[in-house]
């Protein structure tokens, strides 16, 4: 290790990210009151010692709901990115390495998917197949795959022309081994910032979908759903908007800073 200062982006990003991880762990352990328990007597209470973030219109404890939501958010973002990464890696490597007709077909398909603005395609897929955790993950994974495929393709094309790949070809190494052993480790190093950004974008999309009612289904909690429920009480109970928004921004900002840190190291 060279004696190098750790980028402040890492520190800030790490702190922000760990806030969400801690929230997620607390959510998994089931700390605090039941996030799905309604109570007629404690509706729209302001934050206090007994309800750290107040309560919502159905008397549910917001703190507990936020913890539960971070659990789903973290899970969906990681699972969705994994799906996208696997699809994107295979497609991008094939397109980049073989070029020609493979490249054209794969990129055409990828570009067509990317032509649907924002998360439109995922919205439709989920609305048609019914909102569920599983459907949200594969739909978002599919929508995000072309992004990874593009990055991979560019990297593979760049690496493919280098002398060590030529050398491997001269030695007679078969294409699958060249892709897996010679190209993949080098390309993957370049993908890491894209993965972190992908996690952030995945979270953005997931929260937007659940805001529109097409994400995680009630009574399960999710940031987007909490926010859309809170909208009617926005002036009466602003904490219902502020706390979940803050958590969402913390998570995305944390990821974003980490990716800036990784980029800065290169």
């Amino acid at each position: 290790m060279r004696n190098k200062k750790i980028s402040p982006y890492y520190i800030v990003g790490g702190i922000l990210f760990s806030i969400i991880v801690i929230a997620c762990i607390l959510g998994l352990l089931g700390v605090g009151p039941d996030p799905e328990k309604t109570s007629a007597s404690s509706k729209l209470l302001a934050p206090s010692a007994s309800h750290l973030m107040g309560t919502d219109n159905m008397g549910r404890d917001l703190f507990a709901r936020v913890l539960a939501a971070s659990k789903y958010t973290l899970f969906i973002s990681f699972a969705g990115v994994s799906v996208a990464l696997v699809l994107g890696t295979v497609a991008g490597m094939l397109a980049g390495y073989f070029g020609g007709i493979w490249d054209r077909m794969i990129m055409l398909l990828g570009n067509s998917i990317m032509c649907f603005p924002g998360i439109l395609l995922a919205l439709v897929a989920v609305s048609v197949s019914g909102p569920s955790l599983f459907n949200v993950i594969w739909a978002l994974g599919l929508v995000f795959a072309p992004t990874f495929a593009r990055v991979y393709r560019t990297e593979v094309i760049k690496i493919k022309g280098r002398d060590y790949i030529l050398h491997a070809k001269i030695l007679g190494v078969n294409p699958i081994r060249i892709m897996a052993v010679h190209i993949f480790p080098n390309a993957f190093a370049q993908i890491i910032p894209a993965i972190v950004i992908g996690l952030a974008n995945m979270t953005l999309s997931e929260s937007a979908m659940s805001y529109l009612g097409l994400g995680v289904q009630p009574p399960k909690a999710s940031y987007g759903k909490i926010l859309s429920d809170a909208q009617s009480y926005i002036t009466a109970a602003p904490w219902l908007v502020i706390f979940p928004s803050l958590m969402l921004v913390i998570y995305i900002l944390g990821l974003y800073f980490i990716s800036e840190g990784i980029r800065g190291d290169k």
Partner: peptide, 10 residues
Amino acid sequence: AIPPFVLSLV
């Protein structure tokens, strides 16, 4: 890092 719909609400 601010999602548009969150910014809108705020």
